[in-house]
């Protein structure tokens, strides 16, 4: 049985729909991982111990265990304690928190390496420590780690394929469904790979635009 790409058009609609879901879940999880990463970083560095410890536990769980297991826990596990999340939401939370922890590591290091004259200048003007962190230190730290955060977001896109196991009809699952109907794994997996690559290019383009926009302000 040779390759036959002519069967693709008949399934293009479900593959494209899968692309949209992949983009949606990646975008939502990326946003969560970005702002969650900032929050985790600030908590890890400055929160009182009572607040810091629960965050440490989350960090430990999300760094030290497989993402797949985390998705199972959030989607299937939480039901048992009465939290029944839609698959998409569970996927966003799992992916988002997982990568928030990685972003948080980057941001913590960056916060600590912001020149201490910045905090001093802000305090000298009368800002409280919290205000100075929010307006002066954290924005600089985040700018400094936009490139590695971008790398994390590309990894997030690839790992978004994992949410297929909890039934989100994203690109990988859509390809699998097309394969189930046609028994043509090679064609549809290649097609899915091509679409991942295109989305990846799109993300790199966005990242370059962001980097160019902040290049003066660093």
């Amino acid at each position: 049985m040779g390759l036959d790409f002519t069967i693709i058009p008949g399934y293009l609609d479900i593959i494209l729909l899968g692309c949209l879901w992949t983009i949606a879940i990646t975008a939502a999880a990326a946003l969560l991982s970005f702002f969650g990463g900032i929050l985790f970083a600030v908590m890890a560095l400055y929160a009182p111990a009572v607040i810091r410890w629960p965050f440490k536990v989350i960090e430990f769980v999300f760094m030290g265990t497989p993402l797949l297991l985390q998705l199972f826990l959030i989607y299937f596990g939480l039901v048992q304690i009465g939290i029944d999340l839609p698959a998409f939401v569970a996927g966003v939370i799992g992916l988002g928190l997982h990568f928030a922890v990685y972003n948080s590591e980057l941001i913590q290091t960056a916060i600590l390496s912001v020149d201490k004259g910045q905090m001093e200048a802000a305090r000298t003007l009368g800002l409280s420590r919290g205000q100075a962190l929010r307006k002066v230190v954290v924005p600089q730290a985040v700018r400094a780690v936009i490139p590695p955060i971008g790398n994390n977001m590309i990894a997030l896109l690839k790992d978004s394929a994992l949410v297929s196991v909890i039934g989100v009809s994203e690109l990988t699952l859509s390809a699998q469904r097309a394969i189930g109907a046609t028994y043509r794994p090679f064609e549809f997996y290649l097609l899915a790979a091509a679409f991942y690559y295109v989305i990846n290019l799109g993300m790199e383009w966005v990242q370059r635009r962001i980097e160019r926009r902040i290049s003066l302000s660093r």
Binding site: D115, A121, I214, S217
Partner: peptide, 10 residues
């Protein structure tokens, strides 16, 4: 300050 300490992102 000697080293200005302007906020570079502003």
């Amino acid at each position: 300050f000697q080293h200005f300490n302007l906020f570079p992102h502003m």
